[in-house]
């Protein structure tokens, strides 16, 4: 565990909790892509199946359980409790365009051709693109609530911090996982445009709105 890894995990946790609190406090999931949230629930479920097969640490187990629990709580909010506020008309990204290639790739490029390893690989690839329905929704409506941009910022920051964690681990432990690194790079690059808008607009007190 190094400082980048820890702050990365905490940033991820912050993102998840910001989203849950935003929905709970405003009693609304307007502007949130339910499709991205479904994809994140699939990501956590397929990646953390090793909860049933191996124990790494109390930290590791607790975080996995919290991430999975929060992912399903978010889905419950969006599709059941606050369903009336869900903006499904703008959440029109075709997720099969992500699921099919990602599923195929995880069968072709993995560390080991075993069910758990393929599911883990699938989750890594899927996570890298899971935010696209949310970004698509924002580009469609042309704006995002400030609290939603904070959520996106911490969610993007988390994988960027993991990139530094992997550089650290490569130099000091000789550890590297090419699948995670390449997918993490893709994931971080997808947020770059958003990071730019967040820094130049939101941090200066303006609402994030895109030119028509």
């Amino acid at each position: 565990m190094n400082v980048f890894r820890l702050t990365g995990d905490l940033s991820h946790l912050a993102a998840i909790i910001i989203l849950l609190l935003k929905i709970w406090k405003t009693r609304s999931c307007a502007g949130i892509s339910g499709k991205s949230q479904i994809l994140f629930a699939v990501v956590f479920t397929s990646r953390y199946l090793d909860l049933l097969t191996s124990f790494i640490s109390l930290y590791n187990t607790s975080m996995k359980v919290i991430y999975i629990g929060c992912a399903y709580a978010t889905l419950y909010f969006v599709y059941m409790k606050f369903k009336a506020t869900y903006d499904g008309n703008h959440d029109t990204f075709r997720v099969e365009f992500l699921l099919v290639p990602v599923g195929g790739l995880s069968f072709l490029v993995n560390h080991d051709f075993s069910p758990l390893e393929i599911l883990w690989t699938f989750s890594i690839y899927l996570e890298s693109v899971a935010i696209l329905p949310q970004l698509f929704m924002i580009s469609k409506t042309g704006e995002a609530e400030t609290i939603t941009t904070h959520y996106l910022f911490f969610l993007g920051l988390y994988r960027a911090l993991y990139l530094f964690n992997w550089i650290w681990r490569f130099y000091f432990e000789g550890f590297f996982d090419m699948i995670a690194i390449v997918a993490g790079l893709v994931q971080t690059i997808l947020y770059c445009d958003f990071f730019y808008l967040y820094i130049t607009k939101v941090l200066k007190g303006k609402k994030l709105s895109l030119p028509a």
Partner: peptide, 10 residues
Amino acid sequence: DEDVPTKDEL
């Protein structure tokens, strides 16, 4: 499999 990195990350 020794080519599979350990899964200690989240």
